[in-house]
Design a protein around this nucleic acid. Structure first.
Length: 264
DNA sequence: GGAGTTGTTTAGGA
DNA sequence: TTCCTAAACAACTC
């Protein structure tokens, strides 16, 4: 489910726990999402630690504590939420940080998500090494040009899903970006003109920021004149031209597009 | 019961 | 080497 805006929404769900100590850590360490973390290290590190701050970068989240930090990726079905203190864990709740006033929960039925642990004071290297977030100043036109050049044989849709170039963009955002840019999803990156690159760059920035503002705030739906609300069901109609939308598999993912508005 | 799912990693081929 | 595709991971919904 989560792309950069949804990730921002879920990050905020733990905000009530800011400044407060973790009294107890409940986790199922054998679950796939904890891969790479030595047994016992998670409770040892976080028990008694105070949650200081949190931020998102693309689909990645970082929760900073006064000792160490916690990285969270939600995968396809991960969620963060809060519960009454001392509640009984739900079936797919894998990590619960128990505080005085609330329990902070990470659940993920499909286990495609991932939790990382940094025991040192500083920023984890994986966090420092993330490529420019599409809403940041560092995400320049040159970044888009570079990606299109490097992936010249890849369809645009598949390239937009590559997190090393466009961190935070997922399936629905990629479709939305191409639709608003009037670019066909199966178009090869190498054939995109300079003018089209600029349109693509601007559209990525506008959609990222707008999605964060709307979905990141309270999980509201984007505007009706976006592709978003029309792309899910089969037989949806283009909100711009009114013709029937098409569905194809591009880059291994279901892709919704408008043959009339995205002719090439 | 089968198909599909808003994600990432890996293996293997080109 | 570099780039690209398909499969694997896993559980739920329609």
């Amino acid at each position: 489910m989560p792309e950069l805006a949804e990730v921002e929404y879920y990050r905020k769900q733990w905000d009530p726990g800011l400044g407060q100590k973790i009294l107890e850590v409940t986790c199922r360490e054998d679950r796939r999402i904890f891969r790479g973390i030595p047994a016992g290290l998670l409770p040892t590190t976080l028990q008694g630690a105070r949650l200081i701050s949190s931020e998102t970068h693309g689909k990645q989240m970082l929760f900073r504590f006064d000792k160490g930090s916690l990285g969270v990726h939600l995968g396809m079905t991960g969620e963060l939420y809060r519960e009454e203190p001392g509640h009984t864990p739900a079936k797919h709740a894998h990590l619960i940080l128990r505080q005085k006033k609330q329990d902070l929960v990470f659940s993920d039925p499909r286990l495609f998500g991932r939790v990382r642990l940094e025991t040192g004071k500083g920023e984890p290297t994986w966090w420092q090494d993330l490529p420019p977030d599409p809403r940041s100043k560092a995400f320049t036109l040159a970044v888009v040009r570079e990606a299109l050049t490097r992936r010249k044989g890849t369809p645009l849709k598949a390239a937009l899903l590559q997190q090393e170039h466009f961190p935070g963009i997922g399936n629905w955002m990629a479709d939305e970006i191409l639709w608003q840019s009037h670019l066909k999803p199966m178009r090869k990156c190498g054939t995109v003109t300079e003018e089209e690159s600029q349109i693509l760059w601007k559209t990525i920035r506008v959609i990222s920021r707008t999605a964060i503002r709307i979905i990141g705030k309270d999980f509201s739906d984007p505007p009706e004149d976006w592709l978003f609300g029309h792309r899910w069901k089969k037989g949806g109609f283009c909100p711009r031209c009114g013709l029937e939308l098409k569905r194809d598999e591009v880059g291994g993912r279901t892709t919704c597009w408008c043959p009339h508005c995205q002719p090439q």
